[in-house]
């Protein structure tokens, strides 16, 4: 019998702790499949951040270092500057981690053109701590710390990180993808693969922003959550490539 699908060797056998309806599991699998396909599991070091994905080091089947809240790009920089060039270094960060407390670290890693891959999971909320407002929380969105909904007067406007980082000359590749249906999941995988290939080609900093769900803290069913990504998040966070520096050899 022909095997048409098998579990990726990029993930360990550990059962994840993610809630029903959460797309972290899908995104983990995409990263893991890409590393397997690139035959890079033995030459990759991942950096787990703080948030729901803090335990990512239990799930990825490669060397992992766990960073302080928001500091994953700095930790990845330290690894990158030490490790041989054939090693791949990635961070896996949520929106509270990357876009709030870790904003300085991500901006400067991008500005330096640090040759790393950043997987930025944006679910518009702090999940692990119980559903507080994130810098990415949408206007009107109710969270534990915006019980009346986020107001532009009180809490300001959500940050579009991909667009912002794309203004930096140091960033080589920035794309926003989504996980709300199978077609977009496949596109997300393509983007993630591209970003690791860019790193392998030593072209510099790349980030894939992945729109993700948080059924538990959004107060929606898993199915409603996927619809919410499509109807609420994508209009504010449009999908697409925001930065694409020419590949080596393509400059002219």
């Amino acid at each position: 019998m022909k095997t048409v699908f098998k579990r990726t060797t990029g993930l360990t056998d550990a059962e994840t702790h993610y809630c029903p309806g959460c797309t972290h599991g899908i995104i983990h699998r995409l990263v893991a499949e890409v590393l397997e396909e690139l035959d890079a599991l033995e030459t990759t070091v991942g950096v787990a951040s703080v948030g729901c994905s803090v335990l990512a080091y239990h799930y990825f089947n490669c060397d992992m270092t766990q960073a302080a809240h928001g500091r994953a790009p700095a930790v990845a920089t330290g690894l990158r500057r030490v490790l041989p060039e054939d090693r791949l270094v990635f961070t896996y960060q949520g929106d509270g981690d990357l876009a709030s407390i870790g904003m300085a670290e991500i901006v400067h890693a991008a500005a330096r053109g640090e040759n790393i891959t950043v997987i930025f999971v944006n679910n518009a909320i702090y999940g692990m701590t119980g559903g507080q407002m994130a810098p990415t929380t949408l206007l009107g969105q109710k969270t534990a710390t915006t019980p009346e909904g986020r107001s532009s007067q009180l809490q300001g406007l959500p940050i579009r990180v991909s667009e912002m980082l794309a203004t930096l000359d140091g960033a080589a590749y920035i794309e926003r993808v989504s996980t709300h249906d199978p077609v977009h999941v496949l596109k997300a995988k393509k983007a993630i693969k591209k970003s690791f290939e860019i790193q392998r080609n030593r072209q510099g900093f790349s980030m894939i922003e992945v729109l993700s769900s948080c059924s538990t803290n959004w107060g929606l069913t898993p199915e409603e959550s996927l619809k919410w990504i499509k109807s609420q998040m994508i209009p504010y966070y449009p999908l697409g490539i925001f930065k694409q520096q020419p590949c080596i050899g393509e400059e002219s």
């Binding site: 070091v45 960073a67 700095a74 920089t77 330290g78 690894l79 030490v82 670290e105």
Partner: peptide
């Protein structure tokens, strides 16, 4: 390798990364 970090916080976390690499 010498690198000037964007803050003391980043510098110590770069140290964490480099120390992780042994």
């Amino acid at each position: 390798c010498f690198l000037q970090a964007e803050s003391e916080i980043s510098a110590i976390n770069m140290v964490y990364g480099a120390a992780s690499a042994g």
